[in-house]
Amino acid sequence: MIGKGSLPVFIAGKLLKVVFTVWIVTTLIFFLIRLMPSNPIERYIQSLVVQYGMTYEESSARASALFAIDLEANLFSQYLDYLSGAIRLDFGTSFLSPGVPVTAIIAARLPWTLFTVGMGLLFAFALGIVLGALAAYRRDAWWEPVVSGTSSFLSAVPDFLIAIFLILLFGVFTWGGRGSIVPIFQLRGNYGPGVTPGWNWAFLRSVWGHGFVPILTYFFSQIGIWVLLMKGSTTSCLNSDYATIARARGLRPEKILRSYIGRNAMLPIATEFAMRLGFILGGSLIIEQLFVYQGLGLELLKATSNRDYPLMQAIFLVMTVAIVLSNLFAELLYGVLDPRIRQEGKGPHG
């Protein structure tokens, strides 16, 4: 175990690393998005010209009245402004929805993404480790190649293809003249038009109805990899000396599977899970677009096409923080689960 005296130092060191990483990444993002061709005002003018048939001059006038930003200002002073705001957790207001703080937009969108991607990941993880462990344990069973083959296939298929397939399967194909399984309108948006958000039955049912297929998409795009990871991990533990010796000691197979194989096989898997938690937010872009699901991913796409710098920055920051924190969590978790890591840096005895 980490010595009592060094624990705060250890934690502080880790946190410092987190802060440093986040700072580097946000800085990169800040400059990179400004290096992208076009800028918010140009984008706005373009949209007015295209959508409303205004002349370029009219549009420009309207745009400069609307945007209270000075894109000509020195880039570095803009950066300092951004940084000093960010330290106070003030990320500014959206360009495109003037006056609305980007934190409010994120707070409104984040739960939807967490809900769908999180559920998908959770179900995929739970079922994946069970199937993976079984496939390893019963590698002579007839269904083992089926499970492993399907998993390899699923892990290789891009998630948007899975989404398109599920949309076709549930929303487009008619089954024996009965219509589609899920009404097509349910495959767009977060909930139906007639319901009031809140803790009421109609709303929750509508949320579930609309979230179901996206969740299924995340589930199928994740399950393969969990089955394969767990199968590999369990197989190596099954063949380990300690499992063999446990059997030679007359322990029951259930006991061996639980205390000897299961616990060791879960070590790398739990860490992997903790790490993937961080990618929950980043993995939702294309899927949310396909389902017109108003989550963080779709918001990022919109913000990007409008070059809504403050919103883009804030969403990227949230995604970065999620990844960095989940990596830290994974590292700490491994330390808790594995005594060999826990005692790292200490002498051979203690």
Binding site: S240, Y242, R263
Partner: peptide, 9 residues
């Protein structure tokens, strides 16, 4: 038998 024992217990 260098790894005869369950490494996590």
């Amino acid at each position: 038998s260098q790894s005869s024992f369950n490494p996590v217990s």
